[in-house]
Simulated assay, not measured.
Amino acid sequence: MTTFHSTFDPATLRQWDKLLGQVAAIAADHHDAVFASSLAAEDMLLLHAIVQAQAPIEVFTLDTGRLPAQTLGLIDTIAERYGVVVKAIKPDPAAVHEHVAQFGEFAFYESVDLRKACCAIRKVEPLRRTLQGHSAWLTGQRRGQSVTRVELAESEFDPVFGLQKYNPLALWTEEQVWAVIRALNIPYNPLHDQHYPSIGCDPCTRAVRPGEDARAGRWWWEQRTSKECGLHAGNLKAIDPQTV
């Protein structure tokens, strides 16, 4: 069992030990499993678990070309701390150029459709390309992150990309995530300390105000029910129109 500070919450300790077992089991069942890390706090915790469990799971991140410098800096931090190479997957430059030339550099502010088109080019297509040929992928999603994730399963078949999808942190609370990060001194994006609980592309992310939803700073000009970029489009089925 992992040794934590004596004041560490026993329930969270059980969650952590469960996570180590989950990661090891996923690696055993899927020798080609990959972890799509957004380099967020949850993903840094999950990476730490993968390393501690000695699970041979490849890690990659989607470098959209618009990520904050603080986010990209974590790639070097991970290499130094864990000896893990995070593969940066970039979008097709021709597709990016064509979209910008046709609609403008900041067209995503104009409509949800144009924002999703940008996400499709910079995120969804690179993810689809990277997942091709694999049998499973992992994410750091939690139910508490968004109204679109309230029914998130720890394990599910992903109908969008056609492989098994694991969300081992689905049942974790934000408090538990940060308790483990603090206890194990896990590195994280410094923007989290500046009121950025959810961090995406720089022009699409702002700090949240006291009392706001954790994802209020993502695509803040849109309705909260649209706040998925397409990577987790299957989550949208969880929305009850009568509750939002």
Rank of each mutant, 00 (worst) to 15 (best):
A238D: 10
K227W: 07
E228F: 05
A238Q: 12
I239E: 01
C229R: 02
A216W: 13
K227G: 02
K227S: 01
H232Q: 03
R218L: 03
C229N: 06
K227F: 05
W219P: 02
T243L: 15
A207H: 13
A207R: 14
K237L: 13
P210K: 08
W221H: 14
I239L: 15
P241C: 04
W221C: 07
E212Y: 13
E222P: 03
L236F: 02
H232P: 02
D240Y: 12
E212V: 13
R215S: 07
A233I: 04
G217E: 07
G234P: 02
E228R: 04
Q223A: 15
N235H: 06
G217R: 05
R215Q: 10
A214H: 11
E212N: 10
G211W: 12
E212W: 15
P210R: 06
A238L: 06
K237C: 00
G230T: 04
K237W: 08
C229V: 05
G211A: 12
A214Y: 13
E222S: 13
V208Q: 05
R209Y: 11
G234I: 02
T225Q: 14
R215N: 12
H232N: 05
E228W: 08
A214V: 07
T243C: 06
K237D: 09
C229I: 06
A207W: 14
R218F: 03
Q223G: 11
K237G: 04
A216M: 09
D240M: 10
Q242I: 09
P241T: 08
R215P: 03
Q242T: 14
I239K: 03
A238W: 14
H232S: 03
V208S: 05
P241E: 08
V208M: 09
A214I: 09
P210F: 12
D240W: 10
Q223V: 13
G211I: 15
A233F: 04
K227I: 01
T225H: 13
V208T: 15
A238P: 00
